[in-house]
Write a protein that binds this DNA or RNA. Structure first.
Lengths: 230, 230
DNA sequence: CTGTGTGAATCCATTCACAGCT
DNA sequence: AGCTGTGAATGGATTCACACAG
């Protein structure tokens, strides 16, 4: 949703896939997380049935999702967890590391810069930019904050694959335009703002307040019944 | 996705709605954000056409989404922005404020506690819990951190509607079970872990690393062509 | 027997297209 | 003349159900 239809590039890698639904791709990282945990807990095979129960997803959905990419299971047994982890990492492009530029070194940006969840999953922060003279030049999470005006030059010298946007909403679109201009094709946007990008650029929105607001819809009809049942 | 089918409560409020698709509910906060901005910029009416362009969504989708809840537009003119903001806030239950308990006062938890995006959208932090003796008793964002073992009692005395989970993945399920036990029906989960909840509880996942991993799928097929086109 | 892989069937969401209001 | 509201049509995604492999 909120993503223009886009002419996907024809497939060039060896493999087979053709035109996989985006929802499927979005589920794969979640499958991967569960499999990692099961492996750490000593499991070595799992059926789509059991995996589905872990995830709250139907077994058929898991089998169908995986079948887009190959035949990884063994009938009568299930899936080798080790094998499946390897396949998913391959599919998602996680056999390599990816580098990111963070724009915005305010309170939110600094929290993102020191978030420990990216590194272990294969993502490295390579540069931090901000527009405020007060923070440019300071050190954040081991990086010297550079001025956002030097961003396009800087990224042309040493490119990154991913941009993280943590600037105030009113500047988000301009910053994203600059990132796209510098050749970035994937953006993680923490600004609470719908942004427009060319069709070949992917955006994922991180918007906790919007997530809360979609839950209050359901809370508002439940609460009265619980509180004043007479 | 990743949410069990659940028997929704029958509608009791006045209004009309019946069984609205969850995707529709998730879009409403985004519509609201754009409308707020347009209003601040001095606009007073907008057509589904123009609103759709702001959002990267078809006009028909916006009209259909809104039509689940009523007839808010004027033919030939469009929608009154002020009116529509009011209706959406009503629908989403944003005419009141909601209170939240945060579990986990580590690096991530502290960042969440001082995140400035919740208050203006109607969400107040009411309590913070942690399990580590090193942080229990300290002050975080104006709240004294309480021990997680006292959480259920504490929340029975002074309930909250929403729980925010920012504990290590291996403790997330246990913490969520406790929150649910204490009567919380909505959870914002920052732990990178699929969790199980009873059907009447809503969970929204905030998982930036998973968001990145679903974008690398597309990057991995684009990059080689850009870098080594010969 | 157990559990995958997959065409077919079903279910759900999006888009179309136009009648009708302003 | 312009734009909403909405049944009908289309397009996708999920689930079913079973042939087949181990």
């Amino acid at each position: 949703m909120f993503r223009g239809t886009l002419a996907r590039r024809a497939w060039e890698e060896a493999a087979i896939p053709l035109d996989i639904p985006e929802v499927v791709i979005e589920r794969l990282p979640v499958y991967l997380r569960v499999l990692d945990r099961l492996q750490r807990n000593g499991h070595s095979v799992i059926s789509s049935q059991d995996l589905g129960e872990e995830l709250g997803v139907t077994p058929a959905q898991i089998r169908k999702d995986l079948s887009y990419f190959g035949r990884f299971g063994k009938q009568g047994r299930g899936y080798s967890i080790q094998r499946l982890i390897g396949e998913l990492r391959q599919i998602l492009g996680l056999e390599r590391r990816w580098s990111m530029a963070l724009v915005g070194a305010g309170q939110l940006g600094r929290a993102i810069a020191s978030y420990r969840g990216f590194g272990p999953q294969g993502f490295d922060l390579a540069a931090i930019f901000d527009a405020s003279p007060a923070v440019v030049g300071t050190t954040v999470a081991g990086h010297t904050v550079e001025h956002v005006d030097s961003m396009e030059d800087r990224l042309r010298e040493r490119p990154v694959e991913i941009g993280i946007v943590a600037v105030p909403a009113e500047h988000a679109q301009a910053v994203i335009d600059q990132l796209v201009g510098a050749g970035v094709h994937a953006i993680l946007n923490y600004a609470p703002r719908a942004v427009q990008v060319p069709g070949h650029v992917r955006v994922r929105q991180i918007d906790p307040a919007a997530a809360l607001q979609s839950m209050t819809y359901y809370l508002k009809s439940e609460e009265p019944a619980l509180r004043a049942p007479r």
